[in-house]
């Protein structure tokens, strides 16, 4: 059963009661939460995901709710519990859905240390993967959101998972996180995109999540072969420029943007070096998304 097969009422009721088992790619999350904002977000943005009342095994047991103690009476807040333990400080109540998203990122990255994980978006075309690593603010999420509305498949907007055994890219399609001006830019660029309720005044400014475009959730078990590593940089009114990047520099960029490079030791080095070996590496500066779409289309055509 998919989330879209549930009525909002049933979903919210089940989440507030015994919880639901949400299938996110290779992970099953048991989610309990009585906060309408979260139920609405899940109902709208996770529509294509499998969701059940029962499962024998859950990878993550997640609950969102008000903190215990005095605080709940004078300031409305929300805490994210992982297996009954809160890894983060509470956030304002209106950020509950964003906190669910961030908490899920934490669950996945903290418990997938056997893979090489890079901070960055990853999209696919014709079986080939384009990795867009970069720190927050580099514009990778915006670029990723644009690409997946123009025929590229979303593997992830935040987390590039490279399997160290076969160097394939593991899809983890989830709602795409958009910040501040990106929200309007994408709404304008892709009017058909479904964007959830924005959470204002978060640490990252205003944050809203975009529903993964149709198809990518269903194809979450189809791995991609890494073909490109592109370091995007948004520069106001700049023309689109794609510059080749020396492999050694590309390796250092991958290392700098990795979540767990140091965890993997020489296995991480070998994986990263092989990954870079097999990819065309570029820096890419741009200001217009239409230009960027053209450049990426040429990249994809060149690989055929």
């Amino acid at each position: 059963m998919k989330v879209s097969d549930w009525s909002y009422r049933d979903l919210a009721g089940a989440m507030a009661g015994d919880g639901v088992f949400l299938h996110l790619g290779p992970f099953v999350t048991h989610l309990r939460c009585a906060i309408p904002l979260v139920a609405e977000g899940v109902h709208a943005l996770y529509a294509d995901y499998r969701c059940e009342r029962q499962a024998a095994f859950a990878d993550f047991r997640v609950r969102l709710g008000p903190p215990r103690g005095v605080r709940r009476w004078y300031r409305s807040q929300v805490l994210f519990y992982f297996d009954d333990w809160p890894p983060f400080k509470p956030l304002p109540y209106n950020q509950a859905f964003a906190m669910f998203e961030w908490g899920m990122n934490w669950c996945i990255t903290s418990h997938s240390q056997q893979h090489l994980m890079l901070h960055g978006a990853v999209v696919e075309k014709n079986g080939w993967g384009a990795m867009l690593p970069g720190p927050p603010g580099s514009g990778k999420s915006t670029l990723c959101a644009a690409l997946v509305n123009r025929g590229w498949r979303l593997l992830s907007d935040e987390l590039t998972v490279v399997r160290t055994d076969d160097l394939l890219l593991q899809p983890l399609p989830r709602p795409v996180s958009l910040k501040n001006r990106s929200i309007e830019i994408i709404a304008e660029f892709a009017p058909e995109a479904k964007i959830g309720t924005p959470a204002r005044d978060t640490d990252k400014g205003t944050v809203a999540h975009m529903k993964p475009p149709p198809g990518c959730v269903e194809q979450a078990d189809q791995l991609a072969t890494p073909a490109w590593l592109v370091l995007p940089k948004y520069i106001g009114s700049a023309p689109p420029v794609l510059t080749p990047l020396a492999k050694g520099d590309a390796l250092m960029q991958a290392v700098d943007n990795a979540f767990n490079y140091s965890v993997l030791g020489v296995r991480g080095f070998d994986a990263a070096a092989q990954l870079i070996d097999g990819c065309d590496c570029y820096r890419f500066s741009y200001s217009s998304l239409d230009d960027a779409m053209r450049v990426f289309a040429e990249l994809a055509d060149g690989s055929q």
């Binding site: 020396a246 492999k247 050694g248 520099d249 390796l251 080095f269 070096a273």
Partner: peptide, 8 residues
């Protein structure tokens, strides 16, 4: 690992 004049 070597790439041209770059040695990782």
């Amino acid at each position: 690992r070597r790439w041209d004049d770059q040695y990782a």
